[in-house]
Amino acid sequence: MTQPLPLPIVDISGLDSDRLADRLRVARALDRACADTGFLYIKGDQLDPALFQRLLARAKAYFAQDQATKMRHYIGLSLNHSGYVPVGEEQFGGATSDLKEAYDIGCDYLPAEGRRPLLGPNSWPDMPGFREDVEAYYAHVTRIGRRLFRGFALALSLEERHFDAHLRHPPSQLRLIHYPLDASAQDRPGIGAHTDYECFTLLFATAAGLQILDRQGRWVDVPLVEGAMIMNIGDMMEILSNGRYMATRHRVKRVEQERYSFALFHACDYDYVIAPVVRDKAPRYAPLRSGEHLFNQTAQTFAYLKRRIASGELVLTDAVPLDSFGPRDAAADA
């Protein structure tokens, strides 16, 4: 049983203001929204709708190709978890396989900048204009994310540029996701319930379908809001805020229409140690390394990485279960 949820809308235009008072006003609004629900909408002068539409056109053209063409860039062939994700590749915990396909990219890194899982050169399809428009969108939303990191620093009573030094080479990932048309769709999940692993996520979608688990253990719909992006808190920001902000479990239900969504998951640098930065209470979380946590959680989800674990080729260190963060009601997942 679901019901619409009125999420807060935060105008982040003031984060670009020269006046500290304007930036603090946005920081306070972010703080309230993240403490109350962990899910919100953001709007503001920073958002460029033209880039969203260019990315949508590229995604439609890419996913319309035949399966053999798309599988040439299968993510399991990449060195840094980049490329095409076929339907059924992902599975959260013991849930059924996700009914979606995707294309994943990160920030292109040269090998000389250090070898880490999730870091390296992207895998790009042989499609004119695809790389250029995807990179433009990635850069645009990354800039917005960096402003939001400064807003969070103010909200958590830190120096405003506290996170700047830890955003040099983050394994922040952009996912182009396609939910194919299913005229026989029933009102059941199309992507398993989960929290996001990073600090926060910025999402642009073309249709409804997203649901979140509220504090009463009920699944509630997240409608689209014209001119706004959806934002949610992830595991790492829950830790950084020492539990003031909770990573909210969410899922995508099957809907009777084709759907595209573009999520950029914002993380700190791979080797940055995520630990509570709020000092008014005793730490409630053990520290973990940003990239290591992200890779461990990813490896528990993707079939090609699960196969490497099963064969002994890949061994995870200090991995926590996928459902370790955010409030949850086990009965609500049924």
Rank of each mutant, 00 (worst) to 15 (best):
M1T: 12
T2L: 10
P6M: 10
D18W: 04
L20K: 05
R23L: 11
R23S: 10
V26R: 02
A27R: 05
R28P: 00
A29Y: 03
A33N: 03
A35H: 05
F39D: 11
Q46G: 06
L47N: 11
P49I: 06
A50M: 13
A50N: 12
F52H: 15
A59K: 04
K60D: 15
F63V: 05
A64D: 09
Q65T: 14
Q67G: 11
Q67F: 10
M71F: 12
N80P: 04
V87A: 10
G88C: 01
A95M: 07
D98H: 08
K100L: 14
A102Q: 07
I105Q: 10
C107M: 01
C107K: 00
D108P: 00
R116N: 03
P117D: 01
L119R: 14
G120R: 03
P121E: 14
N122Y: 07
W124H: 12
R131A: 07
A136I: 07
Y137T: 00
R143T: 08
R143Y: 06
G145R: 01
L156K: 08
H162Q: 02
D164S: 15
H166M: 15
R168M: 06
P170S: 07
L174E: 09
R175A: 02
L176R: 02
P180I: 09
L181H: 07
D182R: 10
A183M: 14
S184G: 10
A193E: 05
T195E: 01
T195F: 01
E198M: 09
G209D: 05
Q211Y: 11
I212H: 09
I212M: 12
L213D: 14
W219L: 12
W219C: 11
V220C: 15
P223H: 06
L224F: 13
G227M: 08
G227H: 05
M229K: 01
M229A: 09
I233R: 03
D235W: 02
E238F: 06
I239K: 05
I239G: 05
N242H: 13
A247T: 12
T248F: 13
T248M: 15
R254G: 11
V255T: 09
Q257V: 04
F262D: 02
L264V: 07
L264R: 07
H266C: 02
A267W: 01
D271C: 06
I274E: 00
V277M: 04
V278K: 05
D280F: 14
K281T: 11
P283S: 13
P283T: 06
Y285M: 09
P287A: 11
L288M: 08
L288N: 00
G291V: 02
T298E: 04
T298R: 09
T301I: 14
L305Q: 08
R308N: 04
R308T: 02
R308C: 03
S311H: 12
G312Y: 11
E313I: 09
L316V: 10
D318V: 03
P321G: 13
P321F: 14
D323Y: 13
S324E: 09
P327T: 08
P327N: 10
D329M: 11
D329H: 15
D329F: 15
A334R: 13
A334I: 07
